[in-house]
Structure formats: C-alpha cells, structure tokens
Design a protein around this nucleic acid. Structure first.
Lengths: 209, 209
DNA sequence: AAAATAAACGAACGATCGTGCTATTGTCAA
DNA sequence: TTGACAATAGCACGATCGTTCGTTTATTTT
C-alpha cells in the first residue's frame, strides 16, 4: 500500500466524520486539511476538485455502511432471519453510526434532492441499491415461506425506509430516548403485516400490541 | 402596512425559494440580496444577523405549511375525515410545495440534527408541533369511534412522518413518478391498521363534533 | 547511491462569506 | 411642506472559499 493511498484513506475517514456533523456543504477543504494535518493544496491534489472529493466521500460512506450493516447479515439464513438482523443493524447504525454525527447518506439524500449532478446521481444510486437489497430480502422471505405470497416487496422497502427516516428525526433531532421503541414497534407491525397466513391466523391484525 | 414590513415579507418569500433548493447553508445573504434587488447591507439591516435571518425563514416556512396544509382541514369534521384530508394535503405539499425545491423543514431536519443551537431548536419545535397535530388527530378519530381505542397515537404519528420522508426520497431524489402510489398505499395500510374493530373497510363512519 | 517519480508544501489568486460603519434616500405624521 | 425617522445604499474589513502554480521534500525504482 503506497503512501498516497494511505493518506487518501485517512482523509476520507476524517471527511466522513466532518460530513456527518456538518453535511456535504459543511465539508470544506480548509477545515479538512486542518483536521488531517495536511496543507490545503496537498490535500486538494488527491482529488483534483471539490466535487470529486465529495463523490469519494459519498462512496466511502456507502462502503462503510456495507461493511457495518450489510455484510454481517449476509451469512445468515435467507428470509426473515436475515431481514430481522438487517433491520436491527440498521436501527443501530442510524442511532449511533461510526461517526460523531448521523448517517451522511440520509442527510445528503434530502440535501441534494433538488440539485442535479454527479453528487445527486451518486446518492440516488446508493438509495436505489439499498431499496433493492430490502426488496430482495423480502422476496427471499416470500420464497422461504415466511412472508405471504403477493406481498409487494417494493412497498415493503418503501415503508422500511420511512421508518429509518422517522427514527433519525426522533432520535437525533428531537433527542427522544424512547425513539428506538417506536422504531421497533413500527417495524414489528410491518413485519406482522407481511407474514404468511400460517403466522397470521393467530389474531386480528388490528389487535393492539 | 409599512414599507419595512413589506420588504421583509418579500425577502422571506424569496429566501424560502432559495432555501428549498439550496438548503439552509445555501441561503446566503449576497445571493438573497441579488435576487431581491436589494443591497447586501440593506437586506442585512432587516435581520441583524445571519442566524436571525435563518430563524425568520424557518418560521416563515412553518407559517406557509400551516396556511397550505393545516388550516384548510380545520373546518372538516374531526376524526378520520380531517385526518384523511390532512394526509392528502401533506402528500401534495411534499410532492409540489409552493417553492421550486422540496419542503425546507424536512430538509433542515436532517441538516441540523447534529448542530445544537437556535436553529435546531426552531426545527425541533416545528416537528414536535406537527407530530402533536397528528397525534391529536388520531386521538379525535378514536373519540369519534373511527379508530380503535388503545391505538398508540404517538406511534401513529411516528409512522406517518416516516411515510412523508420516504415520499420525499422517492418522488424527489429518485424521481419515480409512481412514488405517490406507494405513499397512498402505505398510508392506507396504516389507517386500516388503526380502524376500530366494529368498522369494516368500506369507510363508513359516524360524524362526531 | 543516484535517478525518477510521487507527495506535500507555501504563497497567492479572485470570489464570496458575514458584518460593521457612514451617508443617502425614501416614507410618513405634523 | 417640513422635520423626524425608517429604509436602503455604498464601501470596506477580515476571513474563508476553491483553485492554480512553482518548489521542496519523501518515497520508490533503477
């Protein structure tokens, strides 16, 4: 591993932390240089432009999410077990990711949704891949007989993404400690609504907890 | 209405547009002065500091949301009718608010969730009030016999907020035209899960003041 | 060890940031 | 119509932004 690659990795790590608290627009070259102990121009040379730096940081964030949340559950049995583990891992990531701030991708999703360009494409791709992962997870649960056939997996992914956003708002912005409870209960309701009829016969779905 | 108040209102209107596309951090005094045809210092004098300008814009955004989404449904019968109308109004607001960009409050919620201060307090207050409104709406639906007793209204609000965020991601970031369908179906599932057991899925209900 | 290449620095650039001043214009009551 | 005061403009400031360029220091290869 050459020197350049090593410093670049260190820069991206620090950039992730900075971005998680201050957002993509708060990620400034001067500040980043100061935190990494490099000169502005020395750091700049690694990326060639601000936009390329931002793209690199977004990709690093995705890689980090994959390593922390996706990869650990790939060894689990397909279907509900894997989906449940992924959910729990995701809620944990959202509440306390390996950065001082919140999930950078979630924040950037709302920051960039009206500004076409490389950055938005990068974020949109990340969100599409995430939803595809959830969709396929739900599809596997159907194939395994856990979820009922006929379940709309795209809608399932849509709902799960919603829970994740609501969690960030509740746990981070409002700082409500009981936020995680709501997340788990909302997720439980969603899973119960997707279960196969064998599991579903025990009681009315409207039944309160 | 004095001159100063009028210009201030014009500034805030333009600021809302700017913020909806570029975010709170993209809302810059120089740019805002240019768009309103004022000088930087002339505009600045209206607010005294950047932070106070930002606070004013956030309050303006709340007022705009109230006028467009909340107020119109207050005349409707309490309970499910009002809640349904609010939902539809909210989805419309999210998809095409009266600004060129997306909902500024939603964006600011994720932008500020890690930076304590006046701005975060303002946004957090707005989100708390919104959730309280939903919570009370659900409570009225219980009182009117539309929703089952025992429904957790706080959880209900949590879930609804999640749908709204997921909508923004789907409709704005990903630009999927069928996004609104998912929103409506997710919302329908949530409502059906909250209906009183005496009620069927025909939507028939009692009117209660 | 010397030569070749990569990495980092230092200084400067034009632009823009938020924010003070002082002057000048415009508005509104007497 | 005039005098008081609110509203806006003009100018300048220090700081920081992203970026370029030439130089110097490290690293790698020969």
């Amino acid at each position: 591993m050459s020197k350049g690659v090593r410093t670049r990795a260190a820069i991206l790590g620090e950039a992730l932390s900075l971005m998680s608290t201050d957002g993509l627009s708060g990620l400034t070259i001067g500040l980043l240089a100061e935190r990494t102990g490099l000169s502005k121009s020395g750091l700049f040379a690694h990326f060639g432009s601000k936009e390329q730096l931002q793209v690199a940081v977004l990709q690093e964030a995705q890689a980090c999410f994959t390593a922390h949340v996706i990869r650990p559950v790939l060894g689990l049995p397909r279907g509900l077990p894997r989906l449940e583990a992924f959910a729990e891992g995701w809620w944990t990531w959202n509440r306390s990711p390996p950065f001082p701030g919140g999930c950078p991708i979630q924040a950037a999703s709302l920051e960039l949704d009206d500004r076409p360009g490389l950055l938005r494409d990068e974020i949109a791709g990340a969100q599409r891949r995430l939803r595809a992962f959830i969709r396929q997870g739900a599809a596997m649960a159907i194939a395994a007989g856990h979820f009922r056939p006929g379940l709309d997996c795209t809608l399932f992914a849509f709902q799960m993404v919603g829970i994740a956003f609501a969690q960030t708002m509740t746990c981070r912005l409002l700082g409500e400690p009981e936020g995680l409870d709501f997340v788990r209960r909302a997720w439980r309701l969603q899973v119960e609504g997707a279960l196969g009829s064998a599991h579903n016969q025990t009681g009315e779905m409207n039944h309160v907890e």
